[in-house]
Structure formats: C-alpha cells, structure tokens
Design a protein around this nucleic acid. Structure first.
Length: 259
DNA sequence: GGTCGCCTGGTA
DNA sequence: TACCAGGCGACC
C-alpha cells in the first residue's frame, strides 16, 4: 500500500484511533517480525501513552510520553486495521496494539515485510530523508544539487528517499510520464527546465492520488503508464513499454518520454 | 550504480 | 507452476 498519499491516509486513521491513548500491550504476531522486534521490547511499551503521531516520508512515528518512539514502515503491503480488543484478529495480522479504551489497532501485512522498531529518546529514529515532495524546499534547484553527483538514470534516483521522501515506484513512473522525461535519462544531466517539470509533476501526481487504496479498482483510469505494458499511451498512443531498473519494473512511453 | 533477500499472496 | 508485486537495506 505504501506510497506517500496512502501512508498519509493510514496515519490519519491511526491518529483517530490511537492518539492520546495508553497502550495495554503490544503483541507481535508473526515470527519474522518477532525476530526483529524482541518480546522484551514489546513488553516495554505497555503503559506508555501515545502523545503524538507523525508521518515522515513513508515512516510513521508514534511518539510515546516517555520519550521513546515506535516507528512503523509498511513496506509493500502493510496497513492499519482498527477494531476492538474483543474481536478476532483480522487476516494477515502481524502486530496489534491494544489500548486502554478497548480499541485495537492491528498492523496487517500479507507479505510480512513491514517493519516495527522502538527507539529510545536519544537515538535517531529515522534514516536520512530528503524533503517531502510538498515541502517548499523541494525545488528544481534543490533537485539539481541532489542529483549532481549521481551516475545513473533518473527513475532509480527518484526512489532514493534521500532525494525526495515518500515517492515510490508507481508515482515515480507516473511523474516521469507527466514530465515527459524518459526514466533512463541521466539524473545529473537533467536541465533546469526538465527539473522544474519534474518537481511539478511529482507534486501533481501525489496531490491527485486519492488517499484510498490504489490497488483496488479504477486502476486503468488512474495510471497513465504504470502496469500498462503494451497498452496505448494516453497522450500519444504509442505502446507503453516495461523495462527493469534497479530490479524494479519501470513503465514508460518510449515516444513521448525523451532522454 | 546493480542484485539479492526478505515474505506471502494473487494471477496468468 | 511460474512469475510478479507498492520497499529497502545489505552486499558487490
């Protein structure tokens, strides 16, 4: 589920369900997650109150009243499901936060790749991240600096969260289509004019994305190039092509997206 | 930079 | 049965 708009929407649901509430217990429900999140860490959050909930890039930070931070990253398929403690666990439940008012917030994740980490007050809870796409600091000039030292193509560079925080594979492809830039174009050689178009396109794509689940319904209507290999480019009619870059699929129009 | 591994499910 | 998947960190 996770690119920025979807994470933002999920963070909103988490806030409604959990903000200001106290944790009865945190249960880790999947062995892969338990390996990375030991039982004693889970036990250690009992009794803490969730004071503030923040999103940064695709990370969600639950600031506890004792200064520690619980950080959640959905990776590919994570999501929150809100229910009551007396209800059965939803399918694909990987971790559950039981709260004192009887609310239960469950981390669901079919692929079990989502991460949950606990950070004490002193340690930095997040890796280095670039500006948010909607941050005024995310400009064509900034992008020029951020890309100046890179060797490769623009598309993999856009997935680097240190360049811009929150962009994922789908929206990176969609933004490049909007900006008419080939995903294989050299990142550091992009002109100012193309960087301007790209910054605008990234903002547009993220703004337009409905907060809901993008993998259910209306796919065809919503994606211009993503997952449309062999279909017609909505702008010029050429066949959309799929290539692999940095191990990920990239979809693009070979006619109207130029290097 | 590119590739692999993490996990599991959905789909061709 | 095989392939693909919205992410990302470790590794070359």
């Amino acid at each position: 589920m996770p690119e920025l708009p979807e994470v933002e929407e999920a963070t909103g649901r988490l806030r409604s369900a959990a903000l200001g509430k106290t944790i009865v217990r945190l249960r880790i429900l999947h062995p892969a997650l338990a390996r990375r999140f030991p039982a004693r860490a889970a036990a250690a959050v009992a009794g803490a109150t969730i004071q503030r909930i923040e999103r940064r890039g695709k990370h969600q930070l639950l600031h506890l009243d004792d200064g520690r931070t619980l950080v959640v990253h959905f990776r590919m398929t994570g999501d929150w499901e809100v229910g009551r403690v007396e209800e059965p666990e939803p399918r694909f439940a990987r971790a559950a936060l039981d709260l004192t008012d009887g609310t239960r917030v469950t981390l669901t994740d079919p692929r079990a790749l989502a991460t949950l980490t606990l950070h004490d007050a002193q340690s930095a809870p997040l890796p280095a991240l670039g500006p948010e796409a909607n941050d005024p600091a995310f400009t064509a000039e900034y992008l020029g600096q951020a890309l100046a030292a890179r060797r490769g193509a623009i598309k993999p560079a856009l997935l680097d969260q240190r360049v811009v925080a929150g962009l994922g594979n789908i929206y990176a492809a969609e933004a490049l289509w909007r900006a008419r830039i080939s995903p294989r174009a050299s990142a550091r050689a992009l002109s100012l004019e193309r960087r301007r178009r790209l910054v605008r396109a990234i903002r547009d794509v993220l703004d337009r994305a409905p907060g809901g689940r993008y993998w259910i319904g209306e796919r065809e209507a919503r994606w211009k190039v993503y997952d449309r290999e062999g279909k017609a480019c909505p702008r010029c009619g050429a066949r959309i092509r799929r290539i692999t870059q940095a191990g990920r699929s990239t979809y693009y129009c070979p006619r109207c997206q130029r290097s």
